[in-house]
Amino acid sequence: MDALVTNFPFVIVAILVAIGFYAVAFKRNLIKIVMGITIIESAVNMFLITLGYVQGAYAPIYTMAPEEAQGNMVLPTPQALTLTSIVIGVAVTALMLAFVVNIYRHYGTLDSRKARRLRE
């Protein structure tokens, strides 16, 4: 039971990645494919944040840090990575949605089976 509690965030990550995979692979609507990619992105961000969590440790803010925080601070790298990844994710999502809008304008549909003139 204890192992499940400790690994609970990782289980969530796995479930989110699976949902995202499903959406990307099987959904026909382009917006839902974008949503699938965004879900995977959230899963990866959560994975990074979970890696950075240390039980009983303090946030690495030196200003007004309590006594017991000395030498017991987490490394802020995963948080920095996640922030970068979120910013990049926003740009990617915006670009993908812009393409979807453009596709809808030209093809009049969001169905990935119908919106394909490029085939062969």
Partner: peptide, 9 residues
């Protein structure tokens, strides 16, 4: 061109 948006997506 619609095809360009499709390829870009």
């Amino acid at each position: 061109r619609g095809e360009a948006a499709e390829a870009g997506f």
